[in-house]
Design a protein around this nucleic acid. Structure first.
Length: 127
DNA sequence: CTTCTAACA
DNA sequence: TGTTAGCA
């Protein structure tokens, strides 16, 4: 199939598919015309890529752990320790990000009169 | 009509 | 990432 069909079957834009290729995540073959040719396996590959991107990983990280993923029942199964490790690190980053957001939110509550700040300050009775 | 590359009011 | 121009 060509890029248009893969895009329709995955819901991913052609632009993104070409970008994934540029990042080494996809390696479609080319027709003499230069048109990219994808196989059915690429549909599953794109889905895996989307899931990983959704987990907050960037294309470089995905490129490293992609071979560690076992294509099983449409879900991802950590096959080698590298993947589990990369996922753990990503989880930790999220915790750190959450922590920073919580403090900046607290800072905002302090300088403006947000609902929560008002309640905790007792200036307005909780409903 | 579809895809390709390159570039950005 | 979207979008668009100019080709093939």
């Amino acid at each position: 199939m060509r890029i248009g069909e893969l895009a329709r079957r995955t819901g991913v834009s052609e632009r993104s598919l070409r970008y994934y290729e540029e990042q080494g995540l996809l390696t479609p073959r080319r027709r003499p015309s230069g048109y990219r040719v994808y196989g059915d396996a690429d549909v599953a590959a794109v889905r895996r890529i989307r899931i990983l991107l959704g987990a907050g990983l960037n294309t470089a990280q995905i490129l490293e752990i992609l071979p560690c993923i076992v294509d099983e029942d449409g879900w991802l199964t950590p096959e080698c320790p590298e993947l589990v490790d990369a996922l753990r690190q990503q989880r930790n980053r999220i915790d750190e990000a959450i922590g920073e957001l919580e403090t900046t939110r607290a800072n905002l509550d302090t300088i403006i009169g947000s609902e929560k700040a008002a309640v905790s300050r007792g200036t307005r009775p909780p409903s």
